[in-house]
């Protein structure tokens, strides 16, 4: 078992507690997390990525328990082992496409994969040295996927990666995520309410507000 959670519980201040069903994934597995807005999908994603600390429960990636880690150690572990694709690309504007990926390698202290060949694979190799401001929405999202992949993480988390993309780009992005995750042997978790994604990944859990 590569990635598993148990009895995750979290409550935002002054709101009812979320309790999430357990997840267990192997290398190369993918999972959809479905649910309405406000159902706690994003909270779950934050818990899985170590961005939030649960009130109780464990998140095990490989041999490490994320909930037991803290501070810089957790940050570094996240940088090395978890690639996160956000709803918006959130690229670092002063840097070029390539530099965005190199920065991810620098902070994670990883050599990881060759940046240029990764960009080529994702079809944005020609833009490697352009400013990120010149990218289209779809290109930017692909760069942010490349950034999530660059350190060969064990777990890839994607938060509504397709919500602002058209059908064609949605299909491209989902296939990219799936293929790359399989290629580097990572578990893939996509949080979404996008019906188009369901056609590609059958394995899913549903989050419901309790």
């Amino acid at each position: 078992m590569l990635f598993s959670t148990q009895d995750l519980k979290y409550s935002h201040p002054g709101q009812p507690q979320f309790s999430f069903s357990d997840i267990s994934l192997d290398k190369g597995d993918s999972l959809l997390v479905l649910g309405k807005s406000g159902s706690g999908k994003t909270t779950l994603l934050n818990l899985l990525g170590g961005l939030l600390k649960p009130q109780s429960g464990t998140v095990i990636l490989g041999t490490a328990d994320l909930t037991k880690m803290d501070g810089a150690k957790l940050d570094l572990f996240r940088g090395k082992n978890i690639g996160i694709v956000f709803q918006k690309p959130h690229l670092l504007a002063p840097l070029s496409v390539k530099e965005n990926l190199v920065a991810a390698q620098y902070f994670a202290k990883e050599k990881g994969q060759n940046v240029q060949s990764l960009l080529d694979e994702l079809g944005i190799g020609a833009k490697a040295n352009s400013s990120v401001k010149t990218l289209s929405e779809g290109e930017a999202q692909r760069v942010s996927i490349a950034r999530a992949l660059v350190n060969k993480p064990q777990l890839i988390l994607a938060d509504e990666p397709t919500s602002s993309l058209d059908d064609e780009n949605t299909e491209k992005v989902i296939n990219l995520l799936k293929n790359q995750a399989e290629k580097i042997g990572a578990a893939l978790i996509i949080v979404t309410h996008d019906q188009r994604v369901k056609d590609h990944i059958s394995n899913f859990i549903e989050v419901k507000a309790t």
Binding site: D75, K80, F86, H90, A93, F107, K109, N151
Partner: peptide
């Protein structure tokens, strides 16, 4: 703030 959060997400520590 987004940029900073992203930096944290890709492995930068608070001190950095």
């Amino acid at each position: 703030k987004y940029d900073l959060a992203i930096l944290r997400a890709i492995g930068a520590s608070r001190v950095q």
